[in-house]
Computed example of a mutant assay.
Amino acid sequence: LGQFGVQTTSIIAALGAAGLAIGLALQGTLQNIAAGIMLLVLRPFRVGEYIDTGSISGTIVEIGLFATELKTPDGLYRLAPNSTLWNVPITNFSRLPTRRFELKVGIDYNDDIDLAEKIMRDHAEADKRVLKDPAASTHVDQLGDSAVVITLWYWTAASDFWPTSREMIKKVKKSFDENGVSIPFPQVTYHGSPQMIALPERFVDARVKET
């Protein structure tokens, strides 16, 4: 080409620049393809399973080579590039056959702890969807500022997790009310003389005007 007066250096430079531009443009696409292949091979999730990555959550509708389709719990459609799913930790809520439910309830310090634990265990053991092994259990989780926190653990089939959990919360609350077990509001107990309490400025100004 040089013999015909064509500047080969300029052509090579132009081709190099074009190749670089194309490479940069395809970089994201190639990443998605590579991630899609890994997702299809390793299968951290399958169609019909519910996942959460922290920023993306929903039920898997379709796994494509470039992107994955999901349906959110409120019925929205989401399309996630495969690279965004491959490079982050994934929590799969549907993969394992059983799940553990945890219910934490705070009761008043004057209430009967043993009674509260028994109520929670009885409801779990009476539900046929709750597994017998491992058995439902309760324990005092912590002594909070305003309440004694009791925790209930039980296991169910993954498909029964949400129905049982919603019903369990309602049943425990109603039984607590019927048996005089209270769930206190956050509160602070003040010990000291009234003179030590700092009053808002508007009340201080009012007292000064009265005197």
Rank of each mutant, 00 (worst) to 15 (best):
P81S: 07
D74G: 10
N179F: 09
I63F: 14
E102F: 06
A80T: 09
R202W: 15
T164P: 08
R166C: 11
A80L: 08
D108I: 03
T68I: 11
R121G: 07
Q3W: 15
G75T: 12
Q27P: 02
G2I: 11
V204L: 09
T211M: 10
S57D: 07
E210F: 15
L76P: 14
N32A: 04
Y154Q: 08
P200E: 07
G54I: 06
D122Q: 15
A206L: 14
R207Y: 08
L131P: 13
I107C: 10
N179K: 09
T72N: 05
F203V: 08
V6I: 13
S193H: 10
I119A: 09
I150A: 01
M120H: 00
T91E: 04
R166M: 07
T53F: 05
I56C: 13
S193E: 14
R99W: 02
S57N: 13
L115T: 05
Y50W: 15
Q3C: 14
G23H: 07
E167W: 03
V188P: 08
F161S: 10
I90M: 01
L42T: 06
I22L: 10
F93C: 01
A147D: 10
N92V: 04
P89Q: 08
F176L: 02
G36P: 01
T138E: 01
I90V: 07
D111R: 07
K71H: 06
D74K: 12
A198H: 03
T59G: 02
I60N: 06
D114W: 04
K128W: 14
G192L: 04
F101Y: 02
V149M: 04
D205G: 04
L131Y: 00
S193F: 05
S137Y: 05
E49I: 14
F161Q: 11
S55T: 11
I56F: 15
I197H: 00
F203S: 00
Q187F: 05
D141A: 06
L79D: 09
T98K: 00
L24M: 09
L152I: 07
S165H: 08
V204M: 12
V105C: 06
A124S: 09
I51Q: 11
G36E: 03
P134A: 12
E201H: 07
R46Y: 15
R202V: 15
N110P: 02
A17W: 10
D145R: 13
F101C: 10
L26Q: 10
H191S: 13
V148C: 04
F161I: 13
P186D: 01
A147C: 10
A147K: 03
G36N: 00
K118N: 13
T91P: 03
R100I: 05
L85P: 06
L85Q: 03
L79M: 01
S83N: 02
W162L: 15
I90F: 04
T211R: 14
I37N: 06
V181C: 08
A147S: 13
G75M: 03
